[in-house]
């Protein structure tokens, strides 16, 4: 067993867990925070996206022990205009991917603000690409929506950006 201290949604939490427990399972099964969802459990869907020190990661591939002393933000700790924008623009149907989509979008907006390029940015050396719909789609491609609510997701993110 390993003792791990985390800061989760602003609160100090302490866990005694074996090293193989993923951050996703720690949040859902040990800390009573089931808002973060388990989709594929292999890094292929993005439903488990959370923020670690503000950066989006897949909690299913993160060993909790590797995130000791880090600041983790889950959907339970989010209060952001994206949430109402998702409702207004039908950015979901079943809602299973939504907590991951929202956390991912928050991380994405921060990355963009910091000047992160994307695979569709015309010139990798150019700074400050505008967040076009094409850019939003590329930058959000790590979040799969089985219902296919992508158009609503793009509209919701675009509304918050513009």
């Amino acid at each position: 067993m390993a003792e791990v201290r985390l800061r989760v949604n602003g609160a100090d939490r302490r866990l005694d867990i074996p090293p193989q427990v993923s951050l996703l399972d720690a949040l859902r099964e040990h800390l009573g925070l089931p808002g973060t969802k388990k989709g594929c459990d292999q890094g292929a869907c993005g439903a488990c996206t959370v923020l670690a020190d503000g950066e989006r990661i897949n909690a299913c591939l993160a060993l909790t022990v590797q995130y000791a002393d880090r600041e983790i933000t889950t959907i339970e700790g989010v209060d952001h205009p994206l949430q109402e924008a998702f409702v207004r623009h039908d950015g979901f149907q079943c809602g299973y991917c939504t907590s991951g989509q929202i956390c991912s979008a928050i991380g994405m907006l921060a990355e963009h603000k910091d000047g992160m390029p994307s695979a569709v940015s015309e010139d990798p050396a150019a700074e400050g690409e505008e967040l076009t719909d094409e850019e939003i789609r590329e930058r959000m491609s790590g979040n799969i929506c089985r219902c296919g609510a992508y158009n609503g997701v793009v509209e919701a993110v675009a509304e918050v950006v513009r």
């Binding site: 993005g46 390029p117 695979a119 010139d123 990798p124 050396a125 930058r139 491609s141 790590g142």
Partner: peptide, 29 residues
């Protein structure tokens, strides 16, 4: 790596290759 100015200006192929791999979440890890 993909975001670093030295990589983006001197080795754009490397920045592009990294940005074409995986997802933003995985690239952060």
């Amino acid at each position: 790596l993909a975001a670093h100015p030295l990589v983006r200006t001197r080795y754009p192929v490397l920045s592009q290759a990294v940005l074409n791999g995986a997802s933003a979440q995985l690239r952060n890890m």
